[in-house]
Simulated assay, not measured.
Amino acid sequence: MLQQIYPQVQHDFQYELNKDMTIAAAHYIPHEDAGQCQYIHGHTYFINITIAGDELGDSGFLVNFRRVKELVHNRFDHSVLNNDKALFNDEDGNFFPSTEVIARTVYEIIQAELDSLAHKPQCVQVFVRETPTSYVVYRPKKKA
């Protein structure tokens, strides 16, 4: 069982859901500053998604854990991230599949799904661990 401690995000919602998953994927960073990471290589990414809200949906869930996994795991597991041209490209650093961009992209995928729900839960944090010693936390800016 995967058990990790994640940085906590402060929020005022009544419910907080966290979904952990592991993704095995390859990527490369197409920039000379990436050093050896310019070449295709793989990671076992550990991802934690934090969703919060004040109301439950008709199912009694804030959001179904299974649906969160379908949206992320089914799309990225056992893939070459750079090949997903709808999300990543080799021309703009904001869209290279770095850990930072992966975390933001996971947020965008999850939040798009949550926006379609009547009770409007919010993705408040995405944690992506690339190696045992390196991770990124993405938190969206609060809406004004």
Rank of each mutant, 00 (worst) to 15 (best):
Y15W: 10
L17M: 15
L71R: 12
Q38M: 07
R129C: 07
E91T: 10
L117Q: 11
G60F: 08
K19A: 13
D12H: 12
E113Y: 15
V137G: 04
R66P: 01
H41L: 01
F65R: 02
Q10N: 06
S134C: 08
S116K: 05
R104I: 04
Y135A: 09
N83V: 00
A86S: 14
Q14I: 12
N64D: 15
Q14D: 09
T22A: 13
C123T: 12
P7A: 13
I29R: 02
I49G: 04
T44C: 04
M21H: 08
R139G: 05
A118K: 13
E55T: 05
I40K: 08
F65H: 13
A52M: 04
F65Y: 14
V9E: 12
L2A: 10
R129F: 11
K120I: 02
V106D: 01
F46C: 01
I29Y: 02
H73K: 09
E32R: 02
N48Q: 09
V9F: 06
F88C: 01
N94K: 06
N83R: 04
I102R: 01
R75H: 05
H11A: 11
L71S: 13
H78A: 08
L81D: 08
I102V: 13
K120N: 14
D33P: 00
K142S: 07
D115H: 07
H78Y: 15
H78W: 10
A26Q: 03
I49V: 14
K143E: 13
S116M: 13
T22Q: 05
F127T: 02
E55D: 14
H27M: 02
L56P: 05
F96K: 00
K143S: 05
C37I: 00
K85P: 00
D92L: 04
H31W: 05
G35F: 12
H41K: 03
Q111N: 06
G53H: 06
R67E: 15
V126P: 02
D54V: 03
E91R: 10
